[in-house]
Amino acid sequence: MSDIASRVKAIIVDKLGVDENEVVNDASFTNDLGADSLDTVELIMEFEKEFDIQIPDDQAENIATVGQAISYIEDAK
């Protein structure tokens, strides 16, 4: 697993209180990992902080799965 992927997953485990095994690439934050709309906003903010990037709102809307988060951040770095 890439460094980015493992850091993204660690944030998701921490913020959503889910088991590491559940945090697979095609897991959806809302449908599979129990996040509500505020949880999702918080995740995006944590990614921005952790990776020192800005994720505009219109792009944040397209980040709905673990894999989408990882690839967005890999592209942004």
Partner: peptide
């Protein structure tokens, strides 16, 4: 402003 979305609630 980087407030946590749970700040107010």
């Amino acid at each position: 402003p980087r407030f946590n979305p749970f700040f107010i609630p």
